[in-house]
Write a protein that binds this DNA or RNA. Sequence first.
DNA 1: CTGTTAGCGCCTTCAA
DNA 2: TTGAAGGCGCTAACAG
Lengths: 368, 368
Amino acid sequence: MPDPRVPTGNVTGVPQVPGRAVGGAGRRTTGPVTLMDVARRAGVSLATASRALNGGERRVREDLRERVIAAAAELDYAVNTQAQAVARGRSNVVGLLVHDIADPYFSSIAAGVMRAADEHGLIVTLSTTMRQPEREAGYVASLRGQRARAVILAGSRVDDPGLAERLQRELAAFEATGGRIAVIGQNRLPADTVLVENRATARELAVALAGLGHRRFAVLAGPKRLITAGDRVRGFTEGLADAGIDLGPDDVVHGDFTRDGGYETMHALLARGFDATCVFAVNDVMAVGAMAALREHGVRLPEEMAVAGFDDIATLRDVTPALTTVRIPLEEIGAAALSLVAQPRAERPRLRRVPGEVVLRESTARIG
Amino acid sequence: MPDPRVPTGNVTGVPQVPGRAVGGAGRRTTGPVTLMDVARRAGVSLATASRALNGGERRVREDLRERVIAAAAELDYAVNTQAQAVARGRSNVVGLLVHDIADPYFSSIAAGVMRAADEHGLIVTLSTTMRQPEREAGYVASLRGQRARAVILAGSRVDDPGLAERLQRELAAFEATGGRIAVIGQNRLPADTVLVENRATARELAVALAGLGHRRFAVLAGPKRLITAGDRVRGFTEGLADAGIDLGPDDVVHGDFTRDGGYETMHALLARGFDATCVFAVNDVMAVGAMAALREHGVRLPEEMAVAGFDDIATLRDVTPALTTVRIPLEEIGAAALSLVAQPRAERPRLRRVPGEVVLRESTARIG
DNA sequence: CTGTTAGCGCCTTCAA
DNA sequence: TTGAAGGCGCTAACAG
């Protein structure tokens, strides 16, 4: 159960919700069953009913306790969590902020968050920026209004000082009201962070690809301001340098962080002409788009062109040729982020490093 | 903005949250800024402040209104939506119930729900059953506790009278407290429904495949109790019958509704031996799993075996050979469901029919 | 148009 | 252990 304190109702199977009339002095309205109703039916006070139902410490006599629980079940009572939150000053909801929930990267993270939230008895509200990072701050403000217990920022940080400052202020305000914060991706905010080793693993990937005999590369780099994308490009460049390979500015082309982004930049590259044996797309979804574009141009994969991605998206593991990529444990990352915010705040921000793993598959054949 | 009534704060850019001391009689606590603080700073009453900030109808003098808004901005005030909901008796949250958010079918629907929710100023809380339909009722109860404005059931209905009855009772209770309900998929619940024409379109698909010359089929049917899966199998069987083709019980094998389900049942089928030129998997994710299994067995696609799926998952549009499938407008379905629950309840449940569209691609070559 | 005053449903001291 | 009562932050009559 998501929250053990919430009576599931219907234990007795008596569908008594509409038109119930309690005790001698029935309630006037037909609105939701309230704790008052339960208390009256059980013949106890409001306070006792509250303690019996919620009671962290069991300081209520057993028979009364049972009567209250029975009454709650009979009336199909469900505690008003909003009122509970107002009275207690804090709620049980965690806000999850993503750029696009249809993107498998985010939906995998979300799955992990949901699983962990369930275990912790927390409720998750979802917000999507529609890939407009400038909306993040507004959502954090909204979550502060909801008195959310925590917020998880799953989207990549953005290279924009103005935005970052506005977001930081909003986060500070959120935290000032007792909210917890976790960031997934980069360690650029003074908050608990699940750091994905984009740069280091992209570097390993480059070395591995060079080891396969590739010497000339093109990079589909994603949006310029997205730090996740930038880190991957940087790491990749470094890895190539390790192998004595130089990546010219013309070899790096920018575009959207989506399938269509990969498709279009690949098309542009093909139209312009380029000299490489291997294309690195900074995420799998783009890589798949690039593969489609290459095929349309009659380029045979992997013989005539190698392609590598990043993330190891589960749904994409069956594309052909199988995609060389970096495995990122997205679901675990989501779960880890939720665990962080479920814990009380530490003195210093916690940092959880998550390594990636290079996975060489058929899309990058050995050459030379 | 998600909710125009929620002041975004930080309009002035004064980071005044922690340690503010208002007017002569500063507040004792350092807790969240309250409407009372705003009212005091603006020199108006609580009611006026409330009206100025929320004011559906603008019945507050302009200068006062401005003073209140300025005060709110200076204090970085964010209305406590929980308290608001308690006072008003209803909240702005909609519960979205899916089986698995990592499944692209559900994440696409979720994307549509999010987009529409944003337009309507509603907040979405996500719940996942982890593919255990018996958990649905519990989540509806939890949403009743949250005083959610509505719930959207995105997962397939299940063929289980006991479960259905428990869910119905829970939904009735939810509705009795003023909640709205929308169901995606089958029209088996007395609630607004976005009906996906699984059966009719599966039938069309079968006819189309028969038109390609196929005469012997195998069906990866998914779980027995999942009605979405069942409807697709039924429609497909009917379509074959239209073409004078009989589908024997041995030609239909059950398994999970996932990629691995498709992979494993296909493997089982191959191990057992079967006589078909075309495999129909009841969703795309399973179809991709089946393709992987076929390849492992050295079966060439599509020459030696045709494969068809269902849903037209965007992320899977680039598999090779391109997958024949039925296009379902998942995002629009999600948006439609949200629109239904955003409207006031009608006398009779609304029904929105969503047709699918057969998309023939390379995975099902013409034979004969 | 503005302010006063009850609530909304629940939790939680504070006495008993 | 139990109950009465005040308070959480906000809204919505109801008077002015």
